[in-house]
Design a protein around this nucleic acid. Structure first.
Length: 809
RNA sequence: GCCGGUGUGGCGGAAUGGCAGACGCGGCAGAUUCAAAAUCUGUUUUGGUUUCCAAGUGGGGGUUCAAGUCCCUUCACCGGCACCA
């Protein structure tokens, strides 16, 4: 039978309209059915539109969402816009358009592009972080954090991006430059809003044990949180008039206390000021110069110069090693960070690489206290099987025992305590820009910072003439006096609004909750909706968000759980990650490299289904992969072949016995591979099936039906069209997912390989259920086997059912 | 430096310890065509003395009847962290 050629440009818009009219993918609000909440990171609607990376993640979860619907789940698969942010603001400034207009244009463009690709999003639940009805609740969460002591204002040295004219969180500084614009980052002291994420370090760590995240993500988050166990120890300062003067250090190796031969304070350590002020330091001039030089260095320079240690002794100051009772010198050096631990260390050059370098350079004594290495050549840092020496009452103990014993001793003497430290720093939450959520705080000359009462939310962004950032480091909002000037909610006196705005990460830290109940005006979402939909069952996104968005949103969610707003401690049950799509030249896709592929162009030429199919087929889902337009054509050719199966279609509803193994094998393989995100092999299995069907010369309706069902999550338009054209009944998206018949997978006889000494020498057909015993009895006399043996004696015979026979001679 | 990951044809990549190279791209040959595109058929790891033999999954060693897969060692590339005491 002749059929019209496959014309995706006609059938794809048709089905997209149909799905929209049917409200086919709207999540239902009956809370009794089993649910599935599938999520992909909502995009930042940039001016350049969708790139080919977005659809990789989107298609993957779209496949799962469509499969879940067919399996009977009530599916929530939403989409929205993370629309606050600097690029929009910068574009608005450059082109003199209000950021709101820019955002609207970009969102419309993105929506159109996404809809062309046929994703089964529930568009009735679209959220936009810049909508006051949305950011009202972002501000509300901030007030809750503040009420629970987790938001505070502090004078902090911050990472200041010179080109964005804006402070950055630690997580936003990459290789010493701004993550967004690659601009120079310097340290500036500013009064900043901070979120006490460190309070949640342990909970964020523990929570990882209960979720199904790919291991890479867990490891990165654990490293970022950076827990270390150890002890804090007090070192007295010799001949100090003030007996309360001690230097407290943090160490993970209290067992090496006898080997602490000097101490180092960070240049910013407050005790240095005190000692200088008191005149104890005899080389105050040199110390002041060193501190000034250290302060001038950016964090980047400090790290760059890491290899070459520098420092100055505090002459006239001596500390007492509490274990040996001996005086030891005190230095300052910028290899000790003021932001970690106590900002001071006991230096054990025998067993710490950095201390060893420092001691070698400045001729400080190096003492061995753990046997096993050679401390004249380098620090011995192995803790696995070292034994303590030169260490008084802990001599002869292994490192682990020595740690316990000396810590107990320190506690008993009142010289120290057990302590856990984290590398995680508090989250710098202020940005000095216009296009962000206003922080709902008021500064009153009498009452200090006062939270805006909840019933006054949202605090909306004022209309302004100019939203350029200022060189003074003040937010552009500061110039809008009739917005800034307000009254104190507490004393009704004149007061000023906080003019800093929230960072980009604020709105995205809770957006998934809003999808549960996006139009709720009385709460961020109803308790009932949250109880039903949370946690997100499957969240796919980029690795670049592991220590940013993913960690931040876990923090907010855990906090909201602690105050009874959300029903689960963790927001995401499962987290997976896709590999990047590179340009055809295997380099990262970027405008400047000129290797950007625009999805629209591909869809124009070969259709959305072929595009989706190729994005899933091109390689292992979790690995970076170069784009190949030729490869994409191969996927279009596959869909053409699927389409042409209609030319050889018969009336039978059966699956012909000759093809049963092929068809059922494909159903099984595709079903399992979708779940494991092995989309490439699932598609390969469908290609093989189509090859088999084509080779058979005719296709039954039963066979085509099975193929369309398993193909439909990846290529929904063609599946829907062929389903309708051949009157299979109803719509394919609402069909039940097909089951496979295990019995049909296995033929009665199988061809196995015959190996002699592990080398394949021939093939024979044997019954599929032949046991090793039967094989040992029957096969040596098999005509072909005997021929291969040529009379040589059999030493050993290995038979693997359905696979091979290996004869050792 | 530390922690992950990856190394397989010309290319993207398959392969519960059991017949390496599935599937696709590209190439080559043929069919169709006035011709081209598209499509279809065949072929395509390498080297040979070509119904067959040998070699072959970054390199070297090992375990095993059997190793891309497990163990040891080494190299290269990618990602993350990096003076965190």
């Amino acid at each position: 039978m002749r059929i019209n050629p496959y014309a995706p440009n006609e059938i794809e818009p048709k089905w997209q309209r149909f799905w929209a009219e049917q409200r086919a993918f709207c999540a239902k609000s009956y809370f009794s059915r089993p649910k599935f909440f599938g999520l992909i990171e909502f995009p930042y609607p940039s001016g350049s539109g969708l790139h080919v990376g977005h659809p990789r993640s989107n298609t993957a979860i779209d496949i799962i969402a469509r499969k879940r619907r067919m399996e009977g789940y009530n599916v929530l698969f939403p989409m929205g816009w993370d629309a606050f942010g600097l690029p929009t603001e910068n574009y608005a400034i450059k082109n003199k358009i209000h950021p709101r207009i820019v955002t609207q244009q970009n969102v419309d463009h993105f929506r159109t592009q996404l809809q062309r690709l046929g994703f089964s999003f529930d568009w009735s639940r679209e959220v936009d972080t810049t909508d006051p009805a949305y950011y009202k609740w972002t501000q509300w969460i901030f007030l809750k954090l503040h009420a629970h002591g987790l938001a505070y204002k502090a004078e902090m040295p911050v990472n200041w991006c010179v080109s964005c004219k804006c402070g950055l969180a630690n997580e936003e500084v990459v290789d010493g430059v701004c993550e967004r614009c690659n601009g120079e980052v310097v340290r500036r002291v500013r009064n900043q809003w901070m979120l006490r994420i460190t309070e949640y370090a342990q909970k964020l760590l523990d929570g990882l044990d209960d979720v199904d995240f790919i291991e890479k993500v867990k490891t990165q988050q654990r490293n970022w949180i950076g827990r270390s166990e150890g002890a804090e120890v007090d070192f007295a300062i010799e001949s100090s008039e003030d007996t309360s003067d001690v230097i407290r250090v943090f160490t993970t190796r209290p067992d090496t206390l006898f080997g602490a031969t000097y101490m180092v304070l960070s240049p910013e350590h407050p005790l240095v000021d005190a000692l200088i002020a008191r005149g104890t330091v005899t080389n105050a001039q040199a110390v002041a110069e060193y501190r000034a030089a250290a302060a001038r260095k950016s964090d980047f320079e400090r790290t760059e110069l890491a290899k070459d240690k520098s420092g100055v002794p505090l002459e006239g100051v001596c500390a007492i090693n509490p274990a040996t009772g001996k005086p030891i010198p005190v230095w300052i050096s910028d290899y000790v960070l003021v932001t970690y631990g106590t900002g001071a260390i006991m230096a054990v050059p025998g067993h710490d690489t950095r201390d060893w370098e420092f001691a070698s350079k400045f001729g400080l004594p190096i003492v061995e206290v753990v046997a096993g290495g050679n401390v004249t050549e380098g620090a011995y840092t192995d803790v696995a099987d070292g034994v303590l020496v030169n260490s008084g009452f802990i001599n002869g103990l292994r490192v682990a025992e020595a740690k316990q014993k000396i810590t107990d001793w320190l506690i008993e003497k009142g010289l120290g305590e057990r302590k856990v430290n984290y590398k995680l720093r508090d989250w710098v939450f202020s940005r000095q820009r216009y296009w962000g959520e206003p922080i709902p705080m008021v500064e009153c000359p009498c009452c200090g910072f006062v939270p805006v009462p909840e019933d006054q939310l949202p605090i909306t962004l004022p209309e302004v003439e100019r939203y350029e950032p200022t060189d003074s480091g003040e937010s552009p909002l500061a110039a809008i006096t009739d917005w800034v000037n307000t009254i104190c909610p507490k004393c009704n006196g004149p007061a000023k609004r906080e003019t800093d705005t929230m960072p980009q990460w604020a709105g995205s830290s809770w957006y998934f909750m809003r999808y549960a109940d996006p139009h709720n005006a009385d709460a961020l979402a109803s308790k009932e909706a949250l109880a039903y939909w949370l946690p997100v069952d499957w969240y796919n996104g980029g690795m670049e968000h592991t220590t940013l968005h993913l960690l931040y949103s876990r923090f907010w969610h855990r906090f909201l759980y602690d105050i009874g707003v959300v029903p689960t401690p963790e927001p995401y049950q499962k987290r997976t990650s896709h590999g990047m799509i590179l340009g055809e030249n295997s380099e990262k896709m970027s405008k400047s490299r000129g290797n950007v592929i625009n999805p629209d162009d591909i869809v124009d030429v070969m259709g959305a289904d072929a595009f989706r199919l190729y994005e899933m087929f091109m390689g292992a889902f979790d690995q970076a992969i170069p784009w190949s337009t030729k490869g994409a054509h191969g996927c279009r050719r596959f869909l053409d072949r699927v389409w042409r199966l209609q030319e050889i279609l018969t009336d039978s509803e059966e699956i012909s016995p000759a093809l049963a193994a092929s068809v059922h094998g494909a159903i099984k393989k595709v079903t399992e591979d979708y779940e494991r995100m092995k989309f490439n092999t699932a598609i390969a299995a469908m290609m093989s099936l189509v090859n088999d069907l084509t080779a058979a010369g005719s296709v039954t309706r039963g066979e085509l039906r099975a193929l369309l069902l398993i193909l439909s999550p990846v290529a929904p338009h063609i599946a829907e069209e062929m389903w309708e054209a051949n009157s299979f009944g109803g719509t394919i998206y609402a069909q039940p997912w097909p089951a496979w018949d295990e019995a049909a997978l296995h033929a009665d006889t199988v061809e196995i390989a015959v190996q002699i000494n592990g080398k394949v020498r021939g093939r024979i057909d044997v019954p599929a259920d032949m046991t090793p015993e039967q094989a040992a009895e029957q096969l040596p006399s098999h005509e072909k086997v005997a021929e291969l043996l040529a009379g040589r004696p059999i030493r050993k015979l290995v038979f693997v059912q359905g696979r091979l026979l290996n004869i050792v001679i």
